[in-house]
Lab assay of single mutants.
Amino acid sequence: GLPEGWEMRFTVDGIPYFVDHNRRTTTYIDPRTG
Score class of each variant (00 low, 15 high):
Gly1His: 11
Gly1Ala: 15
Gly1Lys: 14
Gly1Thr: 11
Leu2Gly: 03
Leu2Ser: 02
Leu2Val: 03
Leu2Arg: 02
Leu2Pro: 04
Leu2Ile: 05
Pro3Lys: 05
Pro3Glu: 04
Pro3Ser: 04
Pro3Gly: 05
Pro3Ala: 06
Glu4Ser: 12
Glu4Thr: 12
Glu4Val: 12
Glu4Pro: 15
Gly5Glu: 04
Gly5Gln: 06
Gly5Arg: 04
Gly5Tyr: 04
Gly5Leu: 07
Gly5Met: 04
Gly5Asn: 09
Trp6Met: 05
Trp6Ala: 01
Trp6Gln: 02
Trp6Lys: 01
Trp6Glu: 01
Glu7Thr: 11
Met8Arg: 05
Met8Asn: 02
Arg9Asp: 07
Arg9His: 09
Arg9Trp: 06
Arg9Ser: 07
Phe10Lys: 06
Phe10Pro: 01
Thr11Phe: 02
Thr11Trp: 02
Val12Gln: 10
Val12Asn: 12
Val12His: 14
Asp13Glu: 14
Asp13His: 13
Asp13Pro: 01
Asp13Trp: 10
Asp13Met: 11
Asp13Ile: 06
Gly14Asn: 09
Gly14Gln: 06
Gly14Tyr: 02
Gly14Met: 08
Gly14Val: 00
Ile15Trp: 11
Ile15Ser: 05
Ile15Glu: 06
Pro16Glu: 06
Pro16Gly: 05
Pro16Asn: 02
Pro16Trp: 06
Pro16His: 04
Pro16Arg: 12
Pro16Gln: 09
Tyr17Ser: 01
Tyr17Asn: 01
Tyr17Val: 10
Tyr17Leu: 10
Phe18Arg: 00
Phe18Tyr: 10
Phe18Ala: 00
Val19Ser: 03
Val19Ile: 14
Val19Gln: 03
Asp20Asn: 05
Asp20Ala: 01
Asp20Pro: 02
Asp20His: 08
His21Pro: 03
His21Thr: 11
His21Ala: 07
His21Ile: 11
His21Asn: 09
Asn22Ile: 15
Asn22Gly: 08
Asn22Asp: 12
Arg23Ala: 14
Arg23Pro: 04
Arg24Lys: 15
Arg24Leu: 13
Thr25Asp: 08
Thr25Val: 15
Thr25Leu: 15
Thr25Asn: 09
Thr26Ser: 13
Thr26Arg: 10
Thr26Asn: 07
Thr26Trp: 15
Thr26Tyr: 15
Thr26Phe: 15
Thr26Pro: 04
Thr27Gly: 03
Thr27Ala: 03
Tyr28Asn: 07
Tyr28Ser: 08
Tyr28Ile: 06
Tyr28Lys: 06
Ile29Thr: 12
Ile29Gln: 13
Ile29Asp: 10
Ile29Phe: 10
Asp30Met: 00
Pro31Ala: 00
Pro31Met: 03
Arg32Val: 06
Arg32His: 06
Arg32Ile: 07
Arg32Trp: 07
Arg32Ala: 08
Thr33Ile: 13
Gly34Tyr: 12
